[in-house]
Design a protein around this nucleic acid. Structure first.
Length: 629
RNA sequence: GCCGACAUAGCUCAGCGGUAGAGCAGCUGUUUCGUAAACAGCAGGUCCUCGGUUCAAAUCCGAGUGUCGGCUCCA
């Protein structure tokens, strides 16, 4: 069960967010406990810009209360690129409401109300918010009081900030007055649970953004629209890579070009794995539930598994490969000399993700993972993990990404002998230290059966994504499936099982690459690497001949034999983001040459004319070396 | 799963009680062209599904499905 993030949104949330709501950073930066009263009050204002963003949230709350007097206030923190505020309202907000709220906010900014900090005695503060029918604020105060009592510290005063007619419970800091607020824009309204708890009331969250000056705001809005253009769901249609259909929600239909990318990524990974001594296996998709009972997943995770009843027996579609890999390991007696045994598997997995969470390729119900299970002796673990980190670096270099590593340690809900855990963590840490380079530590973020190394990347838009994972499992597979090998002394020993996925989910990986490259893939990965463009019909035959030469060098080439003009063919190839356009007219054919136009070439870029064989060699080299534009 | 929005031609969208529209793509014909859109014609739709209101529903109402923005979850 290599625990890839099938789903999991990237760490800084997408688009409408570009926002990172802070809470997602938990663990990474040791943020306060989710939804704690301190955090709710603190509102994330740590810089001047944050203070302004948080102040803007206050102004927005003022506007909302003004327009909807019975509104109950949740919290309104600063977040990456902006702010939000949660409200309980009598009716759902519409885009027209946002415009009206913006207008009121502008009036408040124009009035330049000073922000005034006041301290009230605890009971006075509570009474104030009770009187104003603000139960969420009262709850925060009650929590603070309860915590003070538990700590034996004195009852804290209630800090409020006023600006104009509006008073809010808040620790601050704020800008001096509403006039200091820069250009802002409200972006979206969405639902959010009070304190992130689905059992608590559902509030309406308004997201907004605010910047020091108009240029910064414009730049941000431009980034947003760029991100939208790169959206893999949009490019997937435009580039004819995949589609989704309601007959199988959350599962992609791969079109020929998307499938070509898939096969290319897989082929490259297989080459790496062959070199590293992996042996590829394949295990059944439909599996009896007793397997999951043995592994410990049934009962805990069966909600996420698709069940299939067959002749009154319960089966499920596998949500992970790992338990089945042990059947192959156990199919014969293993010697210490046999280890490490490295099994790879491109297994098709199904996870029943909740309907509201599905999203394009990055959150799916069916996906294929470049999974691997490596069985090692304890003395081999550190070397193997170090080698795996190298595999990750190599694979990510093919697409020009630099992986960052995070060491996730034993969670509270862990199973197994604490001594085994200590040993596993020490070995993983040793491997990370030896592999050099920095890594973050994410305490208690391991899986319930293994400490792990999670791999992150930043894409071309600076967004962080969690990708690969490496897990050192001394407990689940080895113990629950009773794995053994015979050591030098003829004694039975437990191997360690490493679960690892490098691309992770191929679906998700491709989705991220689409956005990272904005669809303009490097040559080696592009589904169509070159289009031959005959200028007139009489050049078609030579075009096919040229395509044949290139295909013989292992390149993916098409010939545009349509009756369109050359200009139109170029435009089409450009829109399809084909790396090379090969233009063939009388002049070129005469010398068995071709005019080479690079995708996205500048207007004044000098164009080369190359012989066919020289071109084939050049492109083949570029492909082999995974060159990136 | 929860809150909200949306669903019209292959794609992008207009129409919002009174006989279904455009651009692009497609097809046919003409054009054979030198670095990002030749010209003309034709064809293309259970207006997501099911129910309801109405003389009349793409349009209003309800339910379902899917998608989108978030929330929650993520072995």
């Amino acid at each position: 069960m290599t625990d890839v993030k099938n789903g999991a949104k990237q760490v800084s949330a997408p688009d409408a967010a570009e926002v990172d709501d802070g809470e997602l950073d938990e663990g990474l930066f040791d943020a306060p406990e989710r939804g704690s009263a301190d955090e709710l009050l603190d509102a994330g204002a740590h810089t001047d810009l944050d203070a302004m963003r948080h102040s803007t949230a206050h102004v927005m709350a003022e506007a909302v209360i003004d327009l909807f007097p019975r509104t109950q206030l949740g919290i309104g923190p600063a977040i990456a690129d902006g702010f939000y505020y949660d409200f309980k309202l009598d009716r759902p907000l519409t885009p027209a409401d946002l415009a009206a709220i913006e207008e009121r906010m502008a009036a408040s900014v124009a009035a330049d109300h000073p922000f005034v900090r006041r301290e009230l005695a605890a009971d006075e503060g509570r009474a104030f918010f009770v009187e104003r029918d603000q139960p969420f604020k009262v709850e925060i105060l009650d929590d603070l009081a309860a915590r003070a009592k538990a700590d034996g510290s004195p009852m804290p005063a209630t800090t409020v900030y006023d600006h104009g007619p509006f008073v809010d419970l808040c620790k601050g800091p704020h800008v001096a007055s509403t006039g200091k607020i820069g250009p802002f824009k409200l972006l979206a309204v969405s639902g959010a649970y009070w304190r992130g708890d689905e059992k608590r009331p559902s509030l309406q969250r308004i997201y907004g953004t605010v910047w020091d000056n108009q240029d910064d705001l414009d730049a941000y809005l431009w980034r947003r629209s760029e991100a939208k253009k790169r959206d893999h769901r949009r490019l997937g249609v435009q580039l004819d890579l995949f589609s989704f259909h309601d007959v199988s929600p959350g599962s992609a239909f791969w079109h020929p070009k998307g499938q070509k990318m898939w096969r290319t990524l897989e082929a490259e990974m297989r080459r790496l794995q062959d070199r590293r001594g992996y042996q590829e296996v394949s295990t059944p998709i439909l599996v009896h539930k007793k397997l999951w009972e043995q592994s410990g997943h049934w009962g805990h995770y069966d909600d996420n598994m698709f069940r299939v009843e067959v002749e009154s027996q319960t089966f499920s579609l596998k949500p992970m490969n790992c338990p089945e890999s042990t059947f192959i390991y156990r199919s014969k007696l293993r010697s210490y000399r046999d280890l490490p045994i490295r099994y790879s598997e491109y297994g098709r997995l199904h996870r029943n993700e909740r309907s509201g969470t599905l999203s394009g390729l990055t959150r799916v119900r069916q996906f294929i993972q470049d999974d691997g299970h490596i069985y090692v002796r304890p003395d081999q673990l550190a070397d193997e993990i170090e080698a795996l980190l190298g595999e990750v670096r190599e694979a990510y270099s093919w697409v020009g990404l630099t992986p960052r590593f995070a060491f996730a340690t034993k969670p509270d809900k862990a199973i197994g002998d604490p001594a085994l855990w200590e040993r596993a963590e020490a070995l993983v840490k040793a491997a990370l230290d030896r592999a050099g380079g920095d890594y973050m530590v994410k305490p208690k973020d391991g899986t319930f059966y293994a400490p792990k190394i999670d791999i992150y990347i930043d894409d071309a838009l600076g967004r962080e994504w969690q990708m690969a994972t490496i897990q050192a499992d001394l407990v689940m597979l080895p113990e629950r499936f009773d794995l053994t090998y015979v050591d030098e002394d003829g004694k039975q020993q437990r191997p360690i099982a490493i679960h690892r996925a490098i691309y992770g989910s191929l679906e998700r990986f491709i989705g991220i690459l689409i956005e990272h490259f904005a669809g303009a893939f490097p040559l080696w990965l592009a589904p169509v690497q070159a289009v031959v463009i005959p200028i007139a019909d009489r050049h078609n035959e030579a075009g096919q001949e040229l395509a044949g030469v290139l295909r013989a060098s292992g390149l993916r080439v098409e010939v545009d034999e349509s009756s369109n003009r050359m200009q139109y063919k170029i435009r089409t190839a450009q829109e399809q983001k084909v790396p090379y356009m090969l233009i063939l007219g009388d002049r070129e054919i005469e010398g068995r040459a071709v005019a080479v136009r690079r995708r996205g070439a500048a207007k004044d870029e000098p164009q080369e004319t190359l012989g066919w064989d020289a071109l084939a060699e050049r492109l083949a080299t570029e492909q082999r070396e995974h060159r990136i534009d």
